[in-house]
Structures are given as C-alpha cells and as structure tokens.
C-alpha cells in the first residue's frame, strides 16, 4: 500500500541514517578514547616519549596523573649517552583491555559510515551544495553578518540552506575526521611498518598522538557547538527532521 502522505524532512534519508551512525561512532570513540588517554595523560612531540622524558602537556585526569611510583633510575652506559630507565613500582589505572578494542570497533563504524557519507555527498552534490562554505564563505560582509546573527538574541533559522559559519564548521570537521584516522593509524606499530609515510606525515609516534588528541579536542568542540545550536533552533523540530521527518498534508 502506498502512503499518500510523503515523509518530509530537510535532510535526505541517507543523510539521516549516516548522521546517526557517525554520531554513535563519535560518541563511543570519545568515551573509549578518554578511557585510553587516562592511562597515560601525558603528551609529547617527536618520535617517542614516556615518563622519563619531557611532556608538553600533562592533564590532571584520573589517578595516573603524576603518579610517583618509580624506582631510582638506572643508567645504561655511565659516561655514554645519558638515557635512563626506571622501573614502575605502583599499580596504575588501566582499562585498556576493553577500551582499546571498543575504540577500534567504533573506528571501523566511523570509517565505514564516513566512506558512505563521503561517496554519497560527492555524487548527490550534498557536500558542495550544503556543507562547504563556497564563495560566500570568503566574503567578509557575509561572514560578519552571520557572526552577528549568531551572537544576537533571535534564533538562527534552521537549515539547510546553512549560513557560512555553519558551513565552515562542517568543512573543518570534515577535514578533521581523516586527520583523526591517519594520526590514529600512525600510532600503530604494524600499519606504520607497512606504510611508514603515515608515521612521517606527523613526525613520529608521539607527535601523531598529540595531533590525535588536539584533533579530538577540535571535534569535541564542534559537537558541543552543534548541540548548543540544536537547542537554540528548536530541538524537537531538529530531532524530528534528523530522524523520522514529518508528514506533509
């Protein structure tokens, strides 16, 4: 039986489906990623880094922050190169048994649905039409008007079509996802054995890890702004538009 009332939504059916697959993947990746990061909340630049080398950032998240459980260091070659080794004497917080496997499971979902999204956005023109900033994105007057509209009290009109700020946000997050995947793969000992350029792209294992964290922070910021804007523009209407749509009469 054919439904006379067509389901309507500003978003194509495939956009809605892939949106939620990506949202689920990002949520699980963020959760498991934070669990993994809590085990060693120190970040470094360069080829390698650990508790005996200098960190550029240490985040006070969880019990492993600046834990002091180290035996006095051992010097490998007295008078030679100054590298040391210290044995850990304390048990640390570590849930990586499940957190890592969960992270990679969600990463497969991200890569799979991300590829579907990229291909469909390309062939339907959704990407160029709705998501990328286009020429308006570089017009100062248009950008300035959109900034003022966002700062003002009146609600921004829900799209599509989207304003230039929103398009810039989408463009940045679309670029961030491949960076996230590549910097993640650059931390893999086996992937980088097969494809060393992935490692060199970031300048080493710990640089890749730092880029992975910073890009995560950028995507997390996008998600927060995205959710705030959904709340500002009629959350029920927006949720409905991104799920079942509504019936046209």
């Amino acid at each position: 039986m054919v439904d006379q009332h067509k389901s309507a939504s500003p978003h194509a059916r495939w956009v809605r489906a892939v949106h939620w697959a990506l949202a689920g993947a990002v949520l699980v990746l963020a959760f498991s990623g934070v669990m993994i990061f809590m085990v060693h909340p120190r970040l470094y630049w360069g080829l390698a880094g650990n508790d005996m080398t200098a960190a550029w950032l240490e985040l006070p998240i969880g019990p492993n922050y600046r834990h002091g459980g180290w035996a006095p260091p051992l010097h490998f070659a007295p008078g030679g190169h100054a590298v040391i080794s210290a044995a850990r004497t304390a048990d640390i917080f570590n849930q990586n048994g499940w957190a890592r496997s969960l992270h990679f499971l969600a990463a497969w979902l991200l890569v799979g649905s991300g590829l579907v999204y990229a291909v469909l956005a390309l062939i339907t023109g959704h990407g160029a039409r709705n998501l990328l900033p286009g020429r308006d994105g570089f017009a100062p007057a248009v950008v300035w008007a959109d900034i003022r509209a966002h700062l003002g009290h009146q609600a921004v009109r829900p799209g599509p079509p989207y304003g230039v700020l929103q398009r810039w946000a989408y463009a940045v997050v679309l670029a961030a996802v491949p960076v996230m995947v590549c910097s993640g793969l650059a931390m893999s000992p086996y992937v980088t054995a097969g494809y060393p350029w992935v490692l060199d792209l970031f300048g080493g294992h710990q640089s890749a890890r730092s880029v992975h964290f910073l890009t995560f922070a950028l995507i997390a910021l996008f998600v927060v702004v995205h959710l705030v804007m959904v709340l500002r523009t009629g959350p029920l209407r927006q949720l409905r538009a991104m799920t079942i749509g509504w019936r046209e009469t």
């Binding site: 993994i36 990061f37 085990v39 060693h40 120190r42 080829l47 390698a48 880094g49 650990n50 508790d51 005996m52 640390i92 570590n94 990586n96 890592r100 931390m187 000992p189 294992h205 710990q206 890890r209």
Partner: peptide
C-alpha cells in the same frame, strides 16, 4: 620503538 598500549613509547 617500543609502543606501549598505555600510550607511551621509547626507542
């Protein structure tokens, strides 16, 4: 490079 599941590495 020793790459630890915890996140650190050492050469």
């Amino acid at each position: 490079r020793h790459t630890c599941e915890e996140g650190w590495s050492a050469i």
